[in-house]
Structures are given as C-alpha cells and as structure tokens.
C-alpha cells in the first residue's frame, strides 16, 4: 500500500474526475474546433472590437456600482445573523434570487419596472423624457442585476468569518462607526471584496439574457460581446467560436488572478 494517509479514496476520486471532465471537456472542444488560422482576423474586426470595448466598459461600471451598493448590503446580510429567522431568511432569499432566475426573466422584470411603460419608467419618460432601454445604461443595469449577488455573497462570507472582536475593540477605543467600518472591517474583508468584485466583473462580462431582453442589441450602444457571439452563431459559426474563446480567455485570466479566494468564506491566506 503506497497510499499515504493524505490520499483520497477512489470512491471520491473517480466521480470527482468525471465531474471535472464534464466541466472541462466542452471547453476543450471549443479550443480544438477553433478556427485558429483566422482567429486574429476575426477578433480584430471593427465590430468585434467595438463589442469588446463596450463589454469591458459596461462591466467595469457595473462592478463599481455593485461595490458601492453590494458591500453595504453584504454587511447588512452578515449582521442579519442576529435577526428573527423570518426576515433573515427572506433577506438572503431576495439577494439570491437573481442567481437562480433565468436572466431573460430578469430582463423582462427590468423592462416592466424601468421600460417606457414600466412602473417607474413611465414617470421617467413623462417627466424627464428619459428612456432607459436601448441605452448603455440599460446594459449596465442588467449586469448589476445579475452580478450583484455574487459580490454580496462573497463579501458576506468574508465578513462572517472575520473576527468581530477587532471591530469591538476599535469601538471601545472611541472610533466612530464609519471609522471602524473603513479602517477595520474593510481591510479585514479586503480579499473577499476583491474576489467578489472580480467574480462580479466576469459575470457582467458574460451577461446575455437580461441584456438582450432589457437593453436590446445595437452595435456600439448595447451590443455586448456575448450578444455579438450569439448573432454570429447564426451567420458564421467559426466566428462565434473565436469570440467564445475571447470571452473564455478573459474569464480565465480573471479567475486565475483570483486563485482560490473566490469561495464565500475562504478569504485566502
């Protein structure tokens, strides 16, 4: 028996490897079938670069908004541990819903709220002549809707595993609440916040369903890279594969940058 004490039983290893293969093989197929000869030419096309820039720009802004709104929401969620069970579970469920909702449904919901005849949108249109659908703002809102839960849950995980005694000590030493949050809490959960932000960014970058439903698709305004990829699939599958690889490459770079810090509760070491 050469197996060391740290070895893992085959009962675990075999299904684990099958599971891993299931996750990886489709991506391998994408790489194998890619039109490597013409890939640079396809990716350097003007319309592709326009989509890529739009995707990177909107995803960055969406991530910024998620940080501003999502970190406080994560703090609230972490503190809800002391609440009564009903509001506590309700809050968590509400935050998690966009994760499990088909993004298209999210897009329809955004239209019904902020569309030209939406609950809020109709007043924006009547009073300020503002229409949100078909604008880059709509792309960003769709991305915020689907990506914010990733950030909130990552940060909340970090907050819950952080040691509250530091905060209590700072408070007893006379620090204001804001001061404690900024100088003690944030640095403690810093890795969780950056992990959440990167995850939020990649999710925004890949957003398709809510975007095409709520924001539509117009080159340079709302047509993000995933939307371009989908349209190319109907015209030129090779181009679609090339664009998928581009999205995959960006996602891999970001996730490798995360190392193993992206699981809620695992804040890295």
């Amino acid at each position: 028996m050469r197996r060391t004490k740290r070895g893992v039983s085959p009962v675990i290893v075999v299904p684990a490897l099958v599971g891993l293969a299931f996750l990886v093989l489709p991506l391998v197929a994408l790489v194998v079938r890619a039109p490597w000869g013409s890939i640079v030419q396809i990716v350097m096309k003007h319309e592709v670069l326009t989509s890529l820039l739009l995707s990177l720009g909107t995803a960055s802004l969406a991530t910024a908004i998620c940080l501003v709104l999502g970190v406080p929401l994560a703090v609230l969620l972490a503190r809800s541990a002391h609440w009564h069970v009903v509001p506590r579970r309700l809050l968590r469920a509400l935050i998690t819903v966009p994760l499990v909702l088909p993004p298209v449904v999210g897009g329809v919901a955004l239209l019904l709220l902020l569309g030209r005849r939406g609950i809020i949108g109709q007043w924006l249109y009547a009073w300020f002549q503002i229409t949100i659908p078909f604008t880059p703002a709509a792309v960003i809102l769709a991305q915020v809707f689907v990506a914010m839960p990733f950030l909130v849950l990552a940060v909340e995980g970090a907050l819950r595993t952080s040691d509250r005694r530091f905060e209590l000590a700072a408070a007893t030493l006379g620090a204001s609440r804001w001061h404690v949050f900024r100088r003690v809490t944030l640095p403690l959960v810093g890795p969780g916040v950056s992990a959440g932000a990167l995850l939020c960014f990649t999710r925004s970058l890949g957003e398709f369903g809510a975007t095409i439903t709520f924001a539509g698709s117009f080159p340079g305004t709302t047509q993000t890279l995933p939307v371009t990829t989908y349209l190319e699939l109907q015209r030129d599958p090779d181009a679609a594969i090339a664009l998928s690889l581009l999205l995959l490459a960006v996602a891999v770079v970001v996730l490798v940058g995360l190392r193993d810090r992206w699981l809620p509760g695992v804040t890295g070491s």
């Binding site: 239209l111 078909f134 539509g216 117009f218 080159p219 989908y230």
Partner: peptide
Amino acid sequence: DTLEQDVKAVLAKVEL
C-alpha cells in the same frame, strides 16, 4: 434602436 436576435423578440418589444 435595436437589432433583435429573432422576430419574436422584436414583437415582444412592440407588445410591451
């Protein structure tokens, strides 16, 4: 203002 991925998506935008 938008170039939709299929005809039903266009129709939905009109219906809404």
